[in-house]
């Protein structure tokens, strides 16, 4: 246990790595959302061809391990373009997440009843307006719990970027473990930090969900 102060001393170094972890997660989730939402809309509202293509995209990307996608972007493209590990990581995780986000957003959009769209169209709203102002505001609220899950998954998957050498949390943990010869303690510490991050993510999204919640029926009606 004489190494304990050493380990404790390396916590700032590890937390810096955790910063990379959070950064990758945030960028990947954003990419996943920006790609996943249009795809989900295509899947629900598009014509047969577009909808099938979107479905195929989803099936293909959900059948590939994130690690393989990461390697394709990092090693596979290396002869054409050399992507830095951070970018490869964000893109790989983003692309994988887009398929899962497409599915969860699709579920949320479909659970906003068809009556909402009908009423909007009956007012003379064009389809796009109806989707943007009536369906999506409700769908996005409904999607928050599932999205919170996805955020946790991406956070955990960000550890895979270890395999392409990025100095994020896990890679740094490995360095500290090698330096202090205390792999067990260091990796457990690493796990604790990840746990903290996941916990914080879930909690903050819970808060967001509660803040966005629509008022429920009052106990007494007039």
């Amino acid at each position: 246990m004489d190494k304990l102060p050493d380990i404790v001393g390396s916590i700032p170094y590890l937390l810096e790595g955790a910063g990379y972890t959070v950064a990758i997660t945030a960028v990947a989730l954003a990419i996943g959302f920006c790609v996943g939402l249009p795809l989900a809309l295509t899947r629900v509202y598009g014509d047969k061809l577009a909808s099938s293509l979107a479905a195929a995209y989803s099936t293909a990307l959900r059948g590939l391990p994130a690690l393989v996608v990461l390697f394709i972007l990092f090693y596979g493209l290396s002869s054409v373009i050399s992507l830095p590990a951070f970018i490869a990581g964000c893109l790989a995780l983003g692309v994988c997440s887009s398929a899962y986000q497409m599915e969860l957003l699709r579920g949320a959009i479909q659970s906003v009843g068809p009556g909402q769209m009908m009423a909007a169209r009956a007012l003379g709203m064009p389809r796009l307006q109806a989707i943007a102002f009536i369906v999506l505001p409700q769908a996005l609220r409904l999607a928050i719990p599932a999205w919170s899950n996805e955020a946790a998954v991406v956070l955990k998957d960000s550890s895979l970027v270890y395999a392409v050498g990025l100095a994020e949390l896990l890679r740094r943990s490995q360095q500290v473990a090698a330096r202090t010869y205390q792999p067990f303690l260091v990796y457990v510490l690493c796990a604790v930090i990840y746990f903290g991050l996941t916990f914080a993510t879930n909690r903050s999204l819970d808060t967001v969900e509660r803040a966005m919640r629509l008022p429920t029926p009052l106990e007494e009606m007039h």
Partner: peptide, 11 residues
């Protein structure tokens, strides 16, 4: 469920 699989593997 709260920690990555890779980290569990390393531990």
């Amino acid at each position: 469920r709260g920690t990555p699989l890779l980290v569990q593997l390393f531990v």
